[in-house]
Design a protein around this nucleic acid. Structure first.
Length: 279
DNA sequence: AGAATTTGACCATT
DNA sequence: AATGGTCAAATTCT
């Protein structure tokens, strides 16, 4: 395959992330099999994200037009994406249409850049439902997601994804590449150590005083979509929030604190080469 | 000023 | 008619 150098870098980093998440899942399972459920689910989600990027890269950018199954209305709209003007012949998703993927996670961050376009109170649900679309819709990306805070566990989100990221070959990967250029990593998944779920939601109206910190990605060069015509000119500030309160590496009392691949990973001495070669 | 979110209206689907 | 998804004007944020 003919991967560009930046794509190769992203591929390598995503492979690292994949291996890290896999190993983290192992650690969580062996460390505390009883309480590792939620944490393992987070690790699993990281795995899924990495897996998707890797699949995309190894498949090449030609996968953009090879959208698998898209709803009829969306397909019709996609046919007209050559004219960058999304005149939008009113493509409305059927109520309760099944998502292509549904993820239950402790964070709403998934590495993509989303723009919120609506919010709705749902009949029996305590929390509102939030609607997002890909920030690169101006480029023809029709990916959409629906985020809902779980009724029982306020620290969990149920995220339903619709549509494929047709921007994946350039936009999301470009953002990743830009982040790598700047020596930064992709927005990490939420770190929520221990059983105490002190992760709070920012959009909880009224009282949003979470112990969270915002992470922002910087834009890459000029391919940041500047489409003022439709009011769609997203920047690269995503709404990533992560709780750092419970994440103290230095003072960790965990048994693996100072002598494990995790620690090696954190202080930068982890032997990635052997990991990659073992693929 | 421009960008991003909020929020009520609008409309398709059930 | 009720419900859920989207639009777009208004508002807030940077």
């Amino acid at each position: 395959m003919a991967l560009g150098s930046s794509a190769a870098v992203v591929m390598e980093l995503m492979t690292m992330g994949y291996q890290s998440a896999a190993y983290l899942g192992e650690l969580l399972r062996s460390a505390s099999p009883a309480t590792a459920g939620e944490q393992q689910e987070l690790a699993a989600e990281i795995l899924r994200c990495c897996d998707r990027v890797i699949a995309k890269l190894s498949r090449g950018a030609t996968g953009a037009t090879t959208g698998k199954k898209r709803k009829a209305a969306d397909a019709a709209a996609a046919a007209a994406t050559s004219s960058s003007l999304p005149v939008t012949p009113t493509k409305r998703r059927a109520r309760g249409a099944e998502a292509e993927r549904e993820v239950r996670s402790g964070t709403t961050a998934d590495g993509f850049i989303w723009r919120k376009y609506g919010q709705k109170d749902i009949n029996g649900c305590k929390h509102p439902r939030l609607y997002y679309r890909c920030a690169f819709r101006g480029q023809g990306c029709l990916a959409t997601r629906r985020v809902q805070q779980s009724q029982d566990d306020p620290a969990a989100f149920v995220i339903a994804y619709y549509g494929e990221h047709t921007c994946g070959g350039d936009a999301a990967t470009a953002a990743a590449a830009a982040a790598c250029r700047d020596g930064e990593l992709m927005p990490p998944a939420v770190i929520n150590s221990g059983g105490a779920s002190n992760f709070t939601v920012a959009w909880n109206m009224g009282s949003h005083e979470p112990a969270s910190l915002a992470v922002e990605q910087r834009s890459c060069d000029g391919d940041a979509p500047s489409e003022t015509s439709q009011g769609w000119s997203p920047s690269f500030s995503s709404e990533v929030e992560l709780d750092v309160a419970g994440f103290e590496v230095a003072g960790a009392d965990e048994p693996w604190a100072n002598s494990s691949p995790v620690w090696e990973f954190l202080n930068g001495s982890f032997d990635w080469e052997s990991v990659i070669n073992s693929l």
